[in-house]
Design a protein around this nucleic acid. Structure first.
Lengths: 156, 156
DNA sequence: GTATATGCAAAGAATTTGCACTATG
DNA sequence: CATAGTGCAAATTCTTTGCATATAC
């Protein structure tokens, strides 16, 4: 647990209890959490935790390169604890995000046409293997956006 | 103008005046418009045009492959009239989106690890050439998100 | 002790929904 | 005429802001 404290200190971030808890959650968890999910999970440990703190903390972490902010899910930001270059697959049926382990050679350049590149994002949209297999869901039209509220499908 | 009508009819979309106007605007305009921008531009032609219709129309067009919905700009969806595969560059200072004319070979596959791929999105975040050149703006920290309201910078 | 972080409540903005009205085939 | 599209207003949801309190150094 002192490792996390060092990670923050090294980057000039005050290691508060909230920040350490968030960093632990995002690092362990291999998933791509939303503020909402993270808040729901962490209020169990910190009952007074506010979403404001989560917004502040995750933007700070993102600026310091500790997490990556994903704009895949329309209408809700997601955060990835894995900073190493990789791509993502977004399932338009269940809303799940799956890691795709390829990296873009072009992004390494650091600049394109004079524009400074800070981040490289690659993602694919479609229907995931599980949703394709699930009967009655096979004919989902491409490009259809499913709002967050009615997208909760368990992949048990 | 009858060409646009045919484009819609061919895909089983009723060619209403609103839809034809939207299709014309998105096709001509090489930019990546938001609902807000599109509404501001089109109320001049159709004073009664509602944002609801724009949301409906653009989602329909996206589902039919006439436009591509971009989730690059955090907090606001953008629509691209160019469907051909290409990437995008998002400037975190001015919020502008610039086309990057490279295409991803992996995306052509149609499927990855059993997941069906409908769309391929690649984008880079950073600071654009113009904003780098503008004095006093050169030290923008990477990853910082600028809300839409205070991001209006003219590139005249 | 001072600067910074947290948390609450309220404000702001994008998107969705319900329903009456209108236009298309 | 019947079906499908449009538009208004209200509701929802995500995100940001202001300020008082609490915490780290």
């Amino acid at each position: 647990m002192n490792v996390l404290k060092d990670i923050l200190s090294e980057r000039g971030i005050r290691p508060t209890f909230q920040r350490l808890t968030v960093l632990a959650a995002v690092s362990e968890n291999r998933s791509h959490v939303t503020i909402r999910e993270l808040h729901a999970a962490l209020v169990k440990k910190i009952p007074t935790l506010s979403k404001t703190t989560l917004y502040n903390t995750l933007e700070l972490f993102s600026a310091k390169g500790l997490v990556r902010s994903l704009s895949i899910d329309p209408g809700e930001a997601r955060y990835d604890g894995v900073v190493a270059p990789h791509h993502h697959f977004y399932c338009s049926v269940c809303g799940r995000i799956i890691d795709i382990e390829i990296s873009c050679p072009t992004g390494r350049a650091g600049e394109i046409h004079g524009h400074r590149i800070d981040e490289v994002h690659g993602y694919f949209k479609g229907v995931c293997r599980d949703c394709l297999a699930r009967p009655g869901q096979t004919s989902v039209p491409p490009g259809k956006h499913i709002p967050a509220q009615r997208r909760r499908i368990s992949h048990a």
